[in-house]
Amino acid sequence: MVAWKPKIIAFTCWCSSSGVDQAGFEGFKYPANVLTVRVPCSAIVNPSIVVKALEEGADAVLLTACKPVELRKIAPSRITEARVSLLRRLLKTVGVEEERVRILWISSNEGGVFANEVSRIVEETERLGPLNLRGRMLEQP
């Protein structure tokens, strides 16, 4: 019997995408069911795209972004952070666990961090079980 495996979409910004590359360079391993989408900046990811991914069958969505640096005013990922936190609360109201949408601070040399974090997230998502958002929404009156 083929065990169920969650599907996870990871939006990786230009900078953290280098970090994701780094994981490969350095020989870290993480589950193959994490699919990366490279975007210029995490702030370009519209919350509706995150919902779309969940609708299309993703069991969790991850955004990897640059950690906003203290003293540096310019940090579009602060916008991402605010949006993700709002989106998580909204999703909770329709019964989607908050853990299914996450933001991870990954800088371009943090391949190991990415591999570890993402493995943990896959495990946790496995524990949550399939999301089946489309199915759930159809069931609802």
Binding site: V20, D21, F28, P31, A32, L35, T36
Partner: peptide
């Protein structure tokens, strides 16, 4: 599409890597 650093090199299993 990065099938090296973000796919082949992080997967243990050839089948997994291929389907990814």
């Amino acid at each position: 599409v990065n099938i090296r650093e973000q796919c082949a090199w992080v997967c243990d299993d050839k089948e997994d890597a291929s389907s990814k």
